[in-house]
Structures are given as C-alpha cells and as structure tokens.
Design a protein around this nucleic acid. Structure first.
Lengths: 330, 330
DNA sequence: ACATCGAGAGACAACGTTGTCATGGAGTAG
DNA sequence: CTACTCCATGACAACGTTGTCTCTCGATGT
C-alpha cells in the first residue's frame, strides 16, 4: 500500500487533481461543498502532501527550518539558548534542527555544510573552530553567531558584554579590598575567553595577579586552583571566567577548606549557585535573551534584510550572593 | 541568478545529465576523466542537489532525519537525553529536529504531527499530554517513548526503574531509623510520578507518612515543604520525587534552618548536588543511557524490525552523599 | 575476421505537486 | 433575448532528479 497522492484524493472525492491542491493550500476559490468532500477524502485516506514534490514545484525556496549548532546541547547555557531560539522559531511556524559541535573542529564545518545541504533557511552558530572562513561561500543562507565572535567571516553576532562584565566582577573584588586576584580561564584563542581576560586586566590597570590560561575541564580547573592556593604568595580572590572552571574551583576550595576564606566571583550563572555555602557571586549572562535576539536577527535576514553585519551585545548582571564579598585575610 | 541544476553542470562539463547524476551519487561506473570534469563543474558552479527533486524520484523514502520531542530542552535531564540521542544519530548520518513540549497539552500533538508531516523517519517522544492515542494512525513512522510511559498507545518505551528506585530511596531512609517519611510529588496522573509513589508506598508496607501530590514548580514545592515541617507531627525525612521539587524542598529546609536535621533523598540527580551542605543523597537516573537505548531502539524500528512493543527499563543508582544519612532526632 | 559480450554513456519517462491557461456555466447589463 | 463578464474548475506542462532502457564502442574468444 503506497502512500496516497493528490490524485488518489481527487479520485475518491470525485474532483480534479488541481481542486485538491487548492483545498490543501487553502485557496479561497473553491465551493464549500467541494472543499468539504476533498477534506473528507484527505481524512479518510490519511493523505499528507509530499514535501519534496511541493518544494520542487514551488518557486518559494523556504523549508521553514533553521539549523542551530551549539557547543553541547546538554550544558545549561546552551540549553537556555536553544530553548529561546526554539520559542522564537515556533512562534513563526519554523522548525529547528540541532547539532552539538563539541570541541571537534571538523564537526562544526561538517554539520554546517550538512544543514545547508538540507536547505535550512538560516543557521545560528556558536563557533568553536578557529576559523569560520568556510562560511563565506554560503551565499543565500544567512548565519547569526551566538556566544562567541567568529573568525575569518563576518555576520550578525550576539554576545555578552564580556569585557565590561569581567571588569565589573574584578572591580567588585577590588572594592572588597582584594589586591591579589587570580584569573582562571579557558584557551585564550577563544574570543570570549580573550575578552574576559581583557576585562580582568582592565580592572586591575594592567597589573594582573596570578593568571592561568588553557584550562580545559573541571578536573583541570580543580588542579589549577589547588596549585594556585599552595603558592607561597596565594591569591586572596579568584575570578573564574567560565562555568566549568568555576565548578572545578569550587571543588578545590572545598577540598582545601578555603571556601569561606578565599573570595570568588564567577563568570556565568549556574543552577543552585545560591544554595551553596557561601552562595556564589556571579556575573550572570542572559542566554535566553541572547537566544531570542539572535533568532530575531536571523529571521530579519531570512525575510530579506540586507544591512551590514551587526554586533549585538547583551549586558551581564552582577549578582552578589556571598562568595564575592569575602574580605581578604589580614 | 537561479540556483544551478544538474543540467547546468552537465553543460559546463560537456557530459549528459545522467552522468552528472552518477558522479554526484558516487556510482562507480564513470570513467575517472569524466568524473573529474563533472566534479570540477560542480565546484565551480557551487552546485548542490535539490533534495526535493531527489526525494521525489527516489523510491527510498528516507529523509535521514528524526524528531525528538522533550519536555524542555533547557533542563539538564532533557539536555543529557538530547545529547545522547544526537550522538547516536550523528553516528548514523542522521539529523535531529527538536521541540520542547512544555506543559502545553496541545503542543505535543501539534509538533508530533508537524514532524511527521516533515517526513521524519522516526520520533522520540517524552509524552506530556494525558493521551497519546493520536499516534495510532502514524503508520509508517516509528515512535519510541522516553522518560514516561504513554497512554492510549503502545510502542517501545525506555524509562527508569521508577518503582524500584523510589523504594530503594525510602528503604534507605528507613534503614537510617526514619519512621515518618514524607512524599512530595508531581501530579499523579503522570505515569512516572505514579510509579515513584508506588515505590514509596511499597517500601513503607502501605503505611505512608504525610503525602503531598500535585506539586508544580519550585515555589510550590518550597511552600509544601514548609507546611509539612510546621505540622504538629512533622516528618523526620523527605522523599522528593522530581528534581524541581527537590530544589524547592532544599530551599525550604534552608529557610527553616532544618537542612542538617531533616533527612532528604531525592529522585533524579542534579549538578552540584555533591557540593551542597549537606551533599544531597539521590537516586540517580541515567539520562544519557536512556537516550542511547531509545535511539538504538528507534533505529532498529526504522531499519524494519517489527516485533511487539518493548518496555526497556534502565536501572537507577542510589548515591549516598549525606542528606540521606541524617538520623531522626530523639 | 566475425560474432559476442560487457561496460560506459546518454535518451527518456516518471515521481507528486503547483503555475498557467483554457473552458464552461451562471449571472448581469443592454 | 443576446452579448458580455466573472469565476469556479479542470487540463496540461513544468520543476530537478533518478530508474530503465538502449546504444555504441572496444575487447575477447573462436
């Protein structure tokens, strides 16, 4: 039993093929009587139009699908982004194809290409690879970047105010009397990490405390923190520039029993930060807002807006909860 | 400038349409020389095959896309599920359309229908609505349920061992001397909630402590917990059957300063549970495993397996961290 | 040298839908 | 009563691709 076609519907309803097409597409020029018969036939045969054929004949090339490539759909930041994008898409009757890029440099390209091959109407991308130049011949498929600035290619970009946010965090610590404030951060070739580091430097007037770059993963962050605190001249406060690093640092502080004596301000909020002891002071990003704004920008592009690439910054919010208000020891 | 077609490629390469088709589809019966010319033409014109036309003509009806409908892609459980499913799909060259169903009873049906309309090869669904009967005429599109059992329709289902897990949690508390153990749970019409409640009852030999059903959201859970603990005869231990409820209960315990004196075992693990004080004892689910198993089952179905609906249970793990090992007061 | 075979290449139809145009019948104005 | 308009309906082609069949040409075997 093959899938029913419009012709089958036409035959059962006793009308022409074209009339079925009209009813299915909601054209108003069909007598109610006929329309009803067609709808009944559609129902009884469980007819569903063949999108391939429809796409083929239509001149409008929209698939009403966008692609979303995030670092890892299972982390809370990506999840919130994803959800916000999905809500915007849903409101427009658009569907969302997702992919996790992870750290694999090739997977970003591979998935971006595959999505384009699938004729997604647009793409929202959290760039992971070191170069997005390959996007330059994606003519006709608008792209919006989120969370990180791209390299080698320019398009609308929606990111947090990383410099200002980081600077605010560090100034907060300075305001509580700290002088030796450590920076713990991700690989500095990542634009976001670089910006946060810049904010850190700026707040300290380019006279940084101990700096550790290139931290990858919770365990590495924990080790780095322990090493820092065992120095002869340990920092009295930490600024962690990424939530994974924050968790590692928290574990280290616990392990050394220093969580009530070493101050900490983290970039990026995380669930339950307020229930820890002490509760963790953070510079909160607003992933839902970033996602919404990015989706709006993408849909503008899809609808034909053709201005120059825009860089949209979403402000961060410092939330004082306790860990950032610890004073340096005597 | 319209999009190039196979004909354009054929003309530039000086071969026939069909030869281009063969090269594009990797058929081996083309002279290397011609194949090279075709590939050069494809490159220079930035030709990409029109999926619609291809799908139309091919007799293989696969879109190599599956749909995944979860409660909310931004919660950690759904995120981990999603990620695991995506990894399995990626390994098979299959793409993933996602949707968040939320609590909206209609959105589940709407999205399920839309995905099927899009001709996804299969669907993984965490059912939210009270009835999945509408799926019964989804002939030809295999469905696998995750996290919750469906109602009104049977298909492969992958869920945690809810009864055993909950019973284990409660027995753990009993083992630490508790007699008045409260149950805090979601709406009992949800199969998962009902099963966990059954496990609770079973562990107590059908002589339950205080029971609160129908808790929706963190705030409600917090209020319910406060009410419970202010009773004349308050419970000495809590069993929270859902992570949202767990968070609310934790907040309430903090607020009343009872977090070190009232025991708690939670169903479902959550990030940082080990960093709270006391660290939270949980019955951990394994969403990544659930997702992987569900994806495997779906792909088996897609590949033609046609046995009766299977119910696959993924075991939970009790992780003792502190909160569940608090003894009842004198 | 001739028949046979095989493999690479092309001609052509077909997939299910929508755009275009023709048709016919009812309604309206003169 | 006729001529004209209008509009619902239908016939037909076309979209870009792949399946099938045929053709051609060179190789092989006798």
């Amino acid at each position: 039993m093959a899938r029913p076609t419009m012709n089958d519907v036409a035959r059962t309803a006793g009308v022409s093929l074209k009339t079925v097409s009209r009813v299915v597409n909601g054209e108003p020029t069909v007598t109610p009587d006929l329309a009803a018969r067609v709808r009944a036939a559609v129902e009884s045969l469980d007819y569903r139009p063949h999108l391939g054929a429809s796409m083929l004949r239509r001149n409008d090339r929209r698939t009403r699908t966008i692609g979303v490539l995030l670092e890892d759909v299972s982390n809370p930041f990506s999840g919130a982004l994803h959800r916000a994008i999905e809500d915007e898409a849903h409101a427009r009757g658009v569907h969302v194809l997702t992919g996790s890029v992870g750290d694999d440099d090739g997977r970003e390209r591979e998935l971006a290409r595959a999505f384009r091959q699938r004729q997604t109407d647009g793409l929202i991308l959290a760039p992971t690879g070191s170069d997005q130049g390959y996007l330059s011949h994606f003519t006709g498929t608008p792209v919006v970047f989120v969370d990180r600035a791209p390299a080698g290619f320019r398009a609308d970009t929606v990111v947090s105010t990383n410099v200002a946010g980081a600077a605010g965090a560090v100034r907060h610590l300075v305001g509580h009397g700290h002088r030796r404030i450590a920076y713990l951060g991700d690989r500095p070739h990542i634009p976001t990490a670089r910006e946060r580091f810049r904010g850190y430097l700026q707040a300290l007037g380019n006279r940084p405390g101990p700096v550790v770059h290139d931290i990858r993963g919770e365990a590495a962050a924990e080790r780095a923190t322990i090493t820092l605190l065992r120095r002869a001249d340990p920092p009295t406060a930490l600024f962690t520039s990424h939530s994974v690093i924050t968790i590692g640092a928290l574990r280290a502080l616990r392990r050394l029993g220093r969580h009530r004596s070493v101050a900490l301000v983290a970039f990026d909020d995380f669930p339950l930060a307020d229930l820890l002891e002490p509760a963790v002071t953070v510079v909160a990003q607003h992933p839902a807002r970033i996602g919404r704004v990015a989706a709006e920008a993408l849909f503008e592009r899809i609808d034909g807006y053709d201005g120059p690439p825009r860089e949209i910054r979403v402000a961060t919010t410092l939330i004082a909860r306790g860990s950032g208000e610890i004073s340096p020891g005597p």
